Amino acid sequence: MPVQNDEAPSFIHAARREQLVRCAIELIAEVGLAQASTVRIAERAGVSRGVLTYHFRDRAELIEQVVRSVYDTGAAFLVPRMRAVTSPRDLLLTFIGGSVELYAAHPTEMAALTAVYAEGVSRAKHRRHTQERSDVEAALREGQERGEFRAFDVGVMYATIRGALDAALVHIAGGGSVEPYASELQTLFDLATTSVRGN
């Protein structure tokens, strides 16, 4: 008599959901969010629309999972690098340089996320984006408290960094190279944030 594996159904369910999210990412990156219907996503995955609606209650839930998956990819790429540094300055430079490298390493995921946000999904209100903002602003404040960074408005500085990284994403998506783009951004924000030495 075969051994009953209670984990098998949930594992299969998770694997199928992951497959469907991956197909959605690829399709959205290719044709945009508006054209990525549940029917087309199911077709790409080689399943019926009923299978897709079994795993996701509606298209909105699937798109939410797409966004989460892309952020998870970014976290897996960036977090180990950021944990390897200790100072706020190095954390900031790692975040900036690593983000540009991320865009080049995962163009499909970045294209899908860009397409989702371009269709009216609010990045500013998404939990994962607000967490990024909170983490970067916390590092900026810590740098100021340690005397590594000069006095500046943390919110404005984060918005400027985010804007520069958005421009970097456009640059990479257009076929541009990581270098010297990444190192130039690192130098730019190092000069913009670092306190005047010797004072």
Rank of each mutant, 00 (worst) to 15 (best):
residue 41 I to L: 07
residue 35 Q to M: 04
residue 40 R to T: 07
residue 181 Y to P: 00
residue 16 R to H: 03
residue 181 Y to Q: 00
residue 11 F to H: 08
residue 188 L to S: 08
residue 43 E to G: 14
residue 50 G to P: 02
residue 15 A to F: 11
residue 123 R to Y: 05
residue 115 A to Q: 12
residue 159 A to E: 11
residue 115 A to V: 08
residue 21 V to P: 00
residue 126 H to R: 06
residue 172 I to G: 05
residue 163 G to I: 02
residue 164 A to V: 01
residue 155 G to Q: 08
residue 54 Y to C: 02
residue 104 A to K: 04
residue 14 A to L: 14
residue 144 Q to L: 04
residue 10 S to T: 15
residue 27 L to R: 15
residue 121 V to G: 05
residue 68 R to W: 03
residue 95 F to H: 14
residue 104 A to T: 06
residue 138 A to S: 15
residue 90 D to K: 13
residue 178 V to T: 14
residue 11 F to Y: 04
residue 30 E to Q: 15
residue 54 Y to G: 00
residue 6 D to M: 13
residue 70 V to T: 13
residue 58 D to Y: 04
residue 136 V to L: 08
residue 150 R to A: 15
residue 198 G to L: 13
residue 1 M to F: 04
residue 162 R to G: 01
residue 63 I to H: 09
residue 154 V to E: 01
residue 25 I to Q: 08
residue 156 V to F: 07
residue 86 T to E: 08
residue 198 G to T: 01
residue 117 Y to A: 06
residue 135 D to F: 12
residue 64 E to A: 13
residue 89 R to M: 10
residue 150 R to N: 07
residue 55 H to P: 06
residue 97 G to T: 01
residue 21 V to D: 00
residue 45 A to M: 10
residue 13 H to V: 00
residue 129 H to Y: 15
residue 56 F to L: 09
residue 93 L to W: 01
residue 194 T to S: 13
residue 63 I to G: 08
residue 141 R to W: 04
residue 47 V to C: 05
residue 179 E to N: 04
residue 62 L to Q: 14
residue 186 Q to G: 02
residue 169 L to P: 00
residue 105 A to S: 14
residue 98 G to T: 06
residue 62 L to C: 14
residue 117 Y to R: 13
residue 184 E to I: 00
residue 137 E to Y: 02
residue 45 A to Y: 09
residue 136 V to D: 01
residue 156 V to K: 13
residue 136 V to H: 01
residue 166 D to N: 11
residue 81 R to S: 14
residue 147 G to I: 03
residue 120 G to T: 05
residue 151 A to H: 11
residue 152 F to N: 01
residue 2 P to G: 08
residue 142 E to T: 11
residue 58 D to I: 04
residue 188 L to W: 01
residue 81 R to K: 10
residue 67 V to N: 11
residue 14 A to I: 09
residue 120 G to K: 13
residue 138 A to R: 15
residue 174 G to I: 06
residue 19 Q to D: 09
residue 115 A to S: 14
residue 65 Q to L: 10
residue 148 E to S: 10
residue 157 M to H: 03
residue 131 Q to A: 14
residue 55 H to I: 13
residue 117 Y to W: 15
residue 25 I to A: 02
residue 9 P to H: 06
residue 79 V to P: 02
residue 23 C to S: 12
residue 62 L to D: 11
residue 139 A to N: 04
residue 184 E to N: 10
residue 166 D to S: 12
residue 143 G to R: 06
residue 81 R to V: 03
residue 172 I to S: 05
residue 194 T to I: 03
residue 132 E to P: 00
residue 96 I to M: 00
residue 80 P to Q: 12
residue 158 Y to D: 05
residue 197 R to F: 02
residue 193 T to E: 02
residue 47 V to M: 01
residue 28 I to V: 15
